[in-house]
């Protein structure tokens, strides 16, 4: 199939950037990224700069790929990362617009590559359980109710790709934040630091320049791992308990 691509080209963080138009011949069995590989091979051979885009595992788990396809983070298919999107969803003659994730907290580095370091910062602020190596008690000493374990897992499923931020009209990372807080907050091991954690992580999220949540639900719909929206409710519950409710000591 013949496709027309409008791809965001931006030399570096300072460059203003623009949409460039390319024609590419794709095959329906290709993945979306393989289609871009084909484009890049052609660009290199003809002496042009290939399109820079982030990708790694190409099996939907590492969370590296990050592009907005026709206005949708990771493209049109539900619960699918860009690397798992296949060209059979497109038709001959289609025009596809490809842009980087847009967020003040994710500055563009080059073309479709953005800097998602702010996510690491949010985790550094408290997205962990403090358990030094060697200090752990016997694993089965603490039973965890299955529903808590399951909910923790559903939240821990987050791949940190940032599609939630890219989809959010407010540029909020609340789904990412809520997912980590719910994962750790559902487990007995996560309790001692629970309220300290939420306050620190929320503040870091704020200072990184993410916006506030208006509960539009865009994040959960765009999320390739279908993290449920209620993790944001959990975030708010814990945050209010910690601050307004005074549960965070010291």
């Amino acid at each position: 199939m013949k496709l027309t691509l409008k791809v965001w080209r931006q030399r570096d963080a300072i460059d203003k950037g623009r949409l460039a138009t390319y024609d590419v011949e794709a095959h329906e069995d290709m993945s979306f990224l393989e289609m871009l590989d084909v484009l890049n091979e052609e660009l290199i051979t003809s002496g042009e700069d290939p399109v820079a885009f982030d990708h790694d595992c190409r099996e939907g788990i590492c969370g590296t790929c990050s592009m907005v396809i026709d206005g949708q983070p990771h493209g049109p298919q539900r619960a699918t990362t860009t690397c798992q999107l296949h060209m059979r969803h497109y038709n001959d003659g289609d025009t596809i617009v490809i842009e980087p994730f847009r967020s003040g907290a994710f500055p563009v580095i080059k073309d479709l590559i953005v800097d998602r370091g702010a996510f690491d910062k949010v985790i550094q602020a408290g997205g962990y359980i403090s358990a030094n190596t060697g200090s752990a008690p016997e694993a089965n000493a603490n039973a965890v109710q299955k529903e808590h374990a399951d909910r923790a897992f559903a939240a821990a499923n987050c791949i940190g790709c940032g599609a939630c931020v890219a989809a959010c009209p407010n540029g909020s990372a609340s789904l990412f934040l809520g997912a980590k807080l719910t994962h750790l907050g559902e487990l007995p091991q996560g309790q001692p630091e629970r309220y300290q954690r939420v306050v620190e992580m929320v503040q870091t999220h704020e200072d990184a320049g993410f916006g506030g949540c208006t509960n539009t639900g865009a994040c959960a719909t765009a999320c390739p791992k279908e993290i449920p929206l209620d993790v944001i409710s959990q975030l708010n519950r814990d945050y209010l308990a910690a601050t307004v409710g005074g549960k965070k000591k010291g």
Binding site: K6, W8, L19, V68, I69, D70, G71, Q72, P73, I96, V97, I98, E99, R102, S103, G104, A105, A166, A167, C168, P169, N170, G171, S172, G209, F210, G211, G212, T214, N215, T216, G217, A218, T221, A222
Partner: peptide, 26 residues
Amino acid sequence: LTLRARRARPIKYAGGSYRVKGSYAA
């Protein structure tokens, strides 16, 4: 919050804005 949102999402998508079904009110 609106001003923050503007700063957090300064650029619109050229390929159309992301819309969730039934989110008109939101």
